[in-house]
């Protein structure tokens, strides 16, 4: 699949402008491609990412990590231009005052304790001893590892290693936090805590970019998503908006009401309604429609005309998992 679904939450990416304006407040990719020899990493990517939590979603090998590595200059684009809040990625001395990146590599410098790991790289940033100590303590406390901090990282569990990496990435209080599979290896409790942390960071105005295979959690945390497949961006924006743009897949709307048969009969009179299924308990129905707004208007009319009692109305397939399934064609590795 190569065509990108039109943007619904982020600024338009298709057709791409020759140069992206107002790059200073966004993370921008302008016509970026990356090839490893003849192997495609990502191709012709145009993005403009605002603050908030943005999730990168796609199957293995879709280009998520390549995109992240390009964003921080660990890889250089074969063509195109990348800027993070206006800073080109080949200037690490400026870039990494604003950016923190927790990679997927589960590797740590030898012989260091969790505390030394976070503290030492703050010193490498050029921070004074006192500053580095204060920032390291704050970051380690945020991820709940103060007790384990004096122990060698080599003795940590997978979840603790993920958390200390997270602490190291955000210890210098960056504006942009990029996290490659940050929920891997975390138990459910820790996941919930880390997701809460991401939300706090996003609420404070940070740019939080997260790649994840765990679609229902992506759904819970994302302000916007970028769906990748085979090195191409296949969709991006707020998930609801992305879903609405997918006209070839009728929207599914679930309605809980007292007389589903009446509503079903009225729905079938509309051209845009493709399918209606009555719920087995006969207390609701599932409508497939090519015009969600048209259906909501119909529903209002039926309520007014017949006194239909409606308990709940909700889109049934406007989540990341459904969009992923429609666009990429698998269940996205449900977890």
């Amino acid at each position: 699949m190569s065509a990108s679904v039109a943007l619904a939450g982020i600024s338009p990416a298709s057709p791409p402008p020759a140069t992206l304006p107002a790059t200073a407040g966004r993370i921008t990719f302008a016509g970026v491609s990356k090839f490893y020899g003849e192997v495609l990493g990502i191709n012709r990517v145009h993005l403009s990412i605002p603050p908030g939590i943005t999730s990168l979603v796609g199957p293995n090998g879709s280009g998520k990590t390549t995109l992240m590595n390009l964003m921080v200059g660990l890889l250089k684009p074969t063509e195109g231009d990348i800027r993070v809040l206006g800073i080109p990625t080949h200037r690490p001395e400026e870039l990494f005052r604003l950016v923190g990146y927790s990679t997927q590599y589960d590797a740590f410098p030898r012989c260091l304790s969790g505390w030394q790991f976070v503290y030492s790289y703050l010193r490498v940033h050029g921070r004074s001893h006192a500053e580095a100590e204060a920032l390291a303590a704050k970051a380690i406390e945020r991820v709940g590892l103060m007790e384990a901090a004096p122990r060698k990282v080599a003795g940590y569990s997978k979840g603790m290693r993920q958390r200390i990496k997270l602490a190291q990435a955000m210890a210098h209080e960056p504006t942009v936090l990029i996290l490659d599979e940050p929920l891997n290896g975390l138990d459910p409790m820790a996941r919930a805590e880390v997701i809460g942390l991401f939300r706090d960071l996003a609420a404070a105005g940070l740019y939080v970019l997260v790649s994840s295979h765990i679609l229902h959690e992506v759904d819970r945390i994302s302000d916007q998503v970028i769906l990748l497949n085979g090195g191409y961006v296949v969709a991006e924006g707020k998930i609801q908006g992305v879903r609405e743009e997918m006209e070839q897949h009728p929207m599914q709307i679930a309605v809980r009401c007292d007389r589903p048969s009446l509503l079903a009969a009225r729905a079938f009179e509309e051209d845009h309604v493709v399918e209606v299924k009555i719920a087995p308990d006969r207390r609701g129905l599932l409508v497939s429609t090519r015009d969600a707004d048209g259906f909501y208007l119909l529903l209002n009319r039926v309520v007014l005309e017949t006194g239909l009692v409606v308990e709940a109305v909700a889109p049934a397939d406007a989540d990341v998992q459904s969009v992923y399934q429609y666009l990429i064609g698998s269940n996205g590795g449900k977890a």
Binding site: R97, L145, A148, L197
Partner: peptide
């Protein structure tokens, strides 16, 4: 894994690069 809860944070924007860079 430690069971300590994650603390709430008050993030501040990253400090600007040292003026000497400019």
């Amino acid at each position: 894994m430690s069971a300590e809860p994650l603390s709430t944070l008050s993030t501040t924007p990253a400090p600007p690069p040292p003026p000497s860079i400019a």
